[in-house]
Amino acid sequence: MVATQPDRWTRYADRLRHSIISPQLISGTVLVSVVISVADESGGIFDVFSITILTVLVFWVTEVYVHTVAEQRRRADQDMVSLRLSFRAALHKARGLLFAATPPLIFLLAGLFGARQGAVAYWVALWIEVLILGVIGWIAFGGRRIRWYWRLCGAVATATLGLLAVLLKILVH
């Protein structure tokens, strides 16, 4: 039996799965979903946008700090502390949190400037996170020998985290 080379799409999906899919991307997407869902939209889309962006920035700074400190555990006791290297590694790991916030913030910003009605932008921002979680699950559970139905189960399970945020929205407001 001759081993076949993976096609271009498979190589791209493998690279995507290994470079972008991260705990920070998943937890960041859920975090943004929850923040948007509990934000009081009656105060206006600006309030939702402001609360979301400030929360993401606080969590991102915290994530960078935590990873910078945690990187120090990898060095031997006699080695010098290299904050520059630790900080660079921390920035790389924490980028998923910023990636997670970008799509819903774009929709909230569009709603802020009237491209979409505020309520529409609010719900689109919330549902786009559910969609993103589903795509993350689909990509994360991908691979050459993974059956489509297992990928679908992974996508649905991951998207369910976003659906819980929508349910929270319905229960809170």
Rank of each mutant, 00 (worst) to 15 (best):
S27N: 05
D77C: 04
L105D: 05
F59P: 04
A115W: 13
L168D: 03
V130H: 01
E63I: 13
L31V: 11
G142C: 10
L161C: 04
Y122K: 08
V66H: 01
W123C: 00
R84Y: 13
A159R: 08
A76W: 09
A125W: 00
A89T: 10
S42T: 06
A39E: 03
W138D: 02
S22I: 10
D79P: 04
R88E: 13
E71V: 05
V124G: 02
D14W: 15
A119R: 05
V58G: 11
L161R: 02
V130M: 03
W9P: 13
A155L: 10
R95F: 12
P23Q: 13
T29G: 01
L91P: 00
I132K: 03
R95Y: 08
V38N: 02
Q24H: 10
S86C: 01
H18F: 13
A119W: 13
G137I: 15
S50H: 08
D7Q: 11
S86D: 02
E41F: 08
L25D: 00
A110K: 04
A39C: 10
V35D: 00
I20M: 10
F49A: 01
M80L: 14
L105Q: 06
A121S: 04
A70P: 13
R15Y: 13
L97S: 11
L57A: 12
M80H: 14
L133H: 05
S82L: 05
G43E: 12
R74W: 12
K93M: 12
L161G: 03
R73I: 10
I45P: 00
I26M: 07
D14Q: 15
A125C: 06
R84F: 07
V172F: 09
L83W: 13
G154P: 10
K93S: 11
F49D: 00
E41Q: 11
V64F: 01
L126W: 01
V2S: 02
L98H: 02
I53R: 06
D40N: 07
R74L: 12
I53K: 06
V30G: 02
G43R: 12
R116M: 12
A157Y: 14
L31A: 06
F87R: 06
A159P: 08
V135N: 09
V35L: 05
Q78C: 05
T55V: 12
P23K: 08
Q117F: 09
A90I: 15
I106D: 06
R75N: 07
F59N: 04
G142W: 13
A119V: 07
G134Q: 07
D40C: 03
F49Q: 02
R17V: 09
S33M: 05
T68F: 00
L163T: 06
F59M: 11
L83T: 14
L25R: 00
E41I: 15
D77M: 07
L57W: 11
L126H: 01
I20A: 02
A101G: 09
R151N: 06
L133F: 09
W9K: 09
H92Y: 08
A119T: 14
L164C: 14
L31M: 14
Y122T: 06
M80W: 13
L57I: 12
G28V: 06
G96L: 04
R88V: 14
T68P: 01
D40R: 10
L31E: 05
I139M: 12
R8Y: 15
